[in-house]
């Protein structure tokens, strides 16, 4: 058994298969709870616990995939450029909206963590939870955070924004499609953007521009906040 568990392409094959199962579940039942990254993660954790596959073997195995993270994240600049061209007229409002949302989020989280007397490593792991994983995880790790906790918090955030977004729009009387897009992208990154795309193409475009701007802004503001942890 252990012999099989050490086959070098096994971690990647299993990860892709686990993700694919999540995708199939989501196609069948259209709920953000069946987020493929979440389902894939739960299945992989179950597999590691059941079979006793070594965590180090899994990490080394998937490193053959993980190096694509930087080029894939950088590619977010391409849709950002396309939306930037399209949304020029509303750019000022979008940027101010993202700034106010991102600053509120960071300050609220920092105060919450300090009030709850969280461990500094946990606080740093939670601070980037509203931005896309591609920016949030390296940010957390650069400041001594735990990548796994950050990823989990980011996914939970996205699912919450996706599911509660329409209710929150009513609650806060956010009726304008551009305003809704900024809210989905700033609060719920890529997973929130999936819901924004269902609302309208304009809302989706604004959301995907907002999520990159929110990520960049959080990276810039992070040193100021991490100092207070």
């Amino acid at each position: 058994m252990t012999e099989f568990l050490r086959i070098s392409i096994l971690p990647i094959a299993l990860t892709l298969a686990a993700f694919r199962i999540g995708q199939l579940l989501q196609n069948k039942w259209k709920t953000p709870l069946f987020n493929p990254t979440l389902i894939g993660t739960v299945l992989m954790i179950a597999f590691l616990l059941v079979t006793g596959m070594d965590m180090a073997d899994y990490t080394v195995g998937t490193a053959k995939l993980s190096w694509l993270m930087t080029p894939a994240t950088i590619s977010l600049a391409i849709p950002m450029y396309e939306q930037f061209q399209m949304l020029r007229k509303n750019l000022k409002a979008i940027v101010i909206g993202v700034v106010s949302g991102a600053v509120t989020c960071l300050v609220f989280l920092l105060l919450g963590c300090l009030l709850l007397r969280f461990d500094p490593a946990l606080t740093v792991s939670l601070l980037p939870k509203s931005v896309t994983t591609a920016i949030g995880v390296p940010l957390s790790e650069l400041y001594g955070g735990m990548g796994g906790v950050t990823t989990a918090a980011i996914i939970v955030t996205g699912i919450f924004a996706n599911m509660m977004g329409p209710t929150l729009c009513k609650l806060f009387h956010i009726t304008d499609p551009v305003a809704q897009g900024v809210a989905f992208g700033t609060a719920g990154h890529v997973i929130g953007t999936a819901k924004a795309n269902e609302v309208s193409p304009l809302t989706g475009a604004v959301s995907s521009l907002s999520l990159v701007v929110a990520g960049l802004l959080t990276a810039i503001l992070f040193p100021l906040l991490a100092g207070a942890v």
Partner: peptide, 9 residues
């Protein structure tokens, strides 16, 4: 897909 591995962490 690339986030599954860090999340398992």
């Amino acid at each position: 897909i690339l986030f599954v591995s860090p999340a398992v962490g």
